[in-house]
């Protein structure tokens, strides 16, 4: 018994640097953010005074009634949906083809995956130039210029500078979504491919002998087997989209009328550009809760399966 006790203490001692720093850097700072989000530190003067005047949930209330933040939430919703659908569709399609081991498949596979190794900042810088619309119709740039070369002027539009929207969907987001899908669809492909390689070939073979079509094999066999993998991919991608700060920052910024704004960009500007510390903290806590809503059910579920 005594020995066991000593062992536990040694274990704790080894873990202690991590426990202490994470206690401060994660739990301490989150609590502090919650606290600041309930103060009125929204001017530099009130921040300097360090006054502890609690305003309750006022900052949250103001946020949710404010046009910019509402736009941000819609943008996040649409960005997340199209980003996930795009990555899943392309990733799954490519993994199905590559799983058949076509000649040169390995090269293609590596090609589709390399954007994962690159910074969002690089992705944003390059795609910003590609999607820079120029002045239409006289002076097209980027992809619009390419469309001119190809005689497809009809497809030209103002990409991420467009202020057109329907059902709260700012179409300017399309450009950002394409860049994000470019970076992350290889990830879904790799996840699916790893899963497909583990599926018993005889299962598929048997179905084929029984006359199942390719579509049936996909919907009735492969997709159900791959459901857990798909679900983890969705969680990760949704998580990425909530954090797509660097991509937006490098590629478009908030854009005209905040068409490409997201909460993370607003948080950064509020906190570090306009001294609205409490508003910034409130946005950060909303972000944290959004991630929590997404992750906690998933974690509980996967721990249960363990």
């Amino acid at each position: 018994m005594k020995r066991k006790h000593k062992e536990s203490l040694t274990s704790l001692a080894i873990l202690s640097p991590s426990i202490i720093t994470l206690a401060i850097f994660v739990y301490g700072f989150i609590s502090r953010s919650v606290q600041i989000s309930m103060l009125d530190w929204n001017t530099f003067a009130s921040f300097m005074k360090k006054a502890r005047e609690y305003v309750g949930l006022d900052n949250y209330y103001e946020l949710f009634t404010e046009a910019r933040f509402q736009t941000d939430l819609w943008n996040t919703l649409y960005f997340t949906i199209f980003f996930i659908v795009g990555c899943l569709a392309i990733g799954i399609l490519l993994s199905l083809i590559l799983n058949n081991k076509p000649k040169g498949g390995y090269i293609f596979q590596n090609l589709y995956l390399f954007p994962m190794a690159i910074s969002f900042v690089v992705t944003g810088t390059v795609w910003r130039w590609i999607f820079s619309p120029g002045r239409l119709p006289a002076d097209p740039r980027g992809i619009n210029l390419l469309l001119s070369h190809l005689g497809l002027e009809k497809l030209q539009w103002s990409w991420f500078t467009s202020t057109f929207s329907f059902l709260h969907f700012n179409v300017a987001l399309v450009a950002v979504i394409i860049a994000a899908v470019w970076q992350y669809s290889g990830y879904t492909m790799a996840m699916w491919l790893a899963g497909l390689r583990g599926i018993d070939e005889q299962l598929v073979e048997a179905a084929r002998i029984d006359g199942a079509s390719k579509w049936q094999i996909f919907t009735k066999i492969l997709f159900p087997i791959q459901k857990p993998i798909t679900l983890s991919a969705i969680i990760v991608l949704a998580h990425v989209s909530l954090k797509a700060f660097a991509l937006i920052y490098a590629m478009t910024g908030s854009g005209p009328n905040n068409v490409t704004d997201i909460p993370a960009v607003y948080m950064f500007e509020a906190t570090f550009r306009s001294n609205r510390y409490s508003t910034g903290s409130a946005i950060a806590i909303v972000l944290l809760m959004m991630v929590g809503l997404l992750i906690i059910p998933y974690l509980i579920n996967s721990f249960k399966e363990d």
Binding site: F25, I30, R32, H239, F245, P263, S281, I283, I295
Partner: peptide, 10 residues
């Protein structure tokens, strides 16, 4: 899992 915005200012 946390978005780092939630710890950033502190």
């Amino acid at each position: 899992f946390i978005p780092y915005q939630s710890v950033l200012f502190p």
